[in-house]
Write a protein that binds this DNA or RNA. Sequence first.
DNA 1: TTTACATGATAGTATTACTATCTTTTTTAA
DNA 2: TTAAAAAAGATAGTAATACTATCATGTAAA
Lengths: 225, 225
Amino acid sequence: MEFSVHIKMNEKLYLRDPEQSELGRKILKHGLELINKLGFEEFTFKKLAVAINTTEAGIYRYFENKHRLLIYLMTFYWSYLEYKIVFSINNLTSPEKKLKKAIELLVVEGDDAEVPSYLSVKKLQQLVMWEGSKAYLTRHVGTDNKDRLFKPYKDLCARLSDLILSYSPKYKFPHSLASTVVEMAHAQKFFKNNLPALTDFPNEKEDKKLTAFLENLLFSSMNTK
Amino acid sequence: MEFSVHIKMNEKLYLRDPEQSELGRKILKHGLELINKLGFEEFTFKKLAVAINTTEAGIYRYFENKHRLLIYLMTFYWSYLEYKIVFSINNLTSPEKKLKKAIELLVVEGDDAEVPSYLSVKKLQQLVMWEGSKAYLTRHVGTDNKDRLFKPYKDLCARLSDLILSYSPKYKFPHSLASTVVEMAHAQKFFKNNLPALTDFPNEKEDKKLTAFLENLLFSSMNTK
DNA sequence: TTTACATGATAGTATTACTATCTTTTTTAA
DNA sequence: TTAAAAAAGATAGTAATACTATCATGTAAA
């Protein structure tokens, strides 16, 4: 049996649905790659247009601006991750195991085969690490939030928050703890690679120590008081 | 007795020392204010030039680009904060009290009177909250790091890391825990104000709950195992 | 087969992120 | 005090960015 999950994207993110056309899918695929290559600040629609042999105007028909494209890619990833977590913990019984699984999924390299070929989980993870917080660190975070653009991220944190409460019903800060773990999964990876003095992780390929750190952070907090 | 501390800034940050001239100090003061007002992306040297009645070229004589100005302001804050922590815990004996003091200083509104009049701790704190991570989330983080531009931030984390070890010598991830607490002090404030679903803090002026969360996070981790 | 619609091609604009040059003013040092 | 050095002001210019607009063409659905 073969199947794939389709993630319904917020319609406010685009002007024309990029999944529905060849050009749209090219924008997503090469957009992701080019942002990763150049960094978000250096990335422009002009450069993307050249890369996929179309015109700037062509891309503007799909996305209002590059920031919307960034949020599109980010929210795809958060939705995918939430789905992946729900699916993976479905068969588990203890909240402890569920939370450990969730941390593992936050940290390990994803599998590109699980998403449409015009996207790549590994590349999305790189994007989250480098550009993730730029999705919300803008002056229009308020209106973007009203447009529910951050719903997938909030849903993911809410999901973790529920797990935290089911493990430790009296814990006082489940949402903050959830967002801390999610943020730190990526921030600590960035630090490990770029500002290693801020971490205790040797620069090896595996992220076992990061996983251990996040588990320690999460379970210690929940087990206290 | 009146005194003030002078923070020596990394010379690579500027082309001409902004503290040494009226124009330089105006760039710092109004630069900080204008970035806070417009957000870093919308902020330009042209707009700043208009605001302080000089020319774009005039500002470029002090700072290579707006990103350097951002790092200048950020590192000033991190240096100030480290000094403030060292000064405040000097008279304390227990590592526990020292760490609690450090968290308090990370969270509470600073006192503008403690820095030169062309800067403002409160405004720098707003800057850290909104633009802080943009200082390092760039493709040139490697070269910037080689130029030691992030030293004040790393020093601050190292300081906290030492306190963590003196409280709990066997704790395995003192640097990561330190950077987590510092990052979260600001990220959670941002979430509280802008994406409250990611926190458990009601939108009141006081940050007592944030302090409680950070203390819980820190001490639980250190007390485990 | 009409007609709607997506794409392509081209052009244009205000702004950004600089660099260059020349003049005037202020500071400093002989 | 005066000459020279340095800082600031004024102006200009350039390539790139972040769009918007228009018109032609090809393709797919009614």
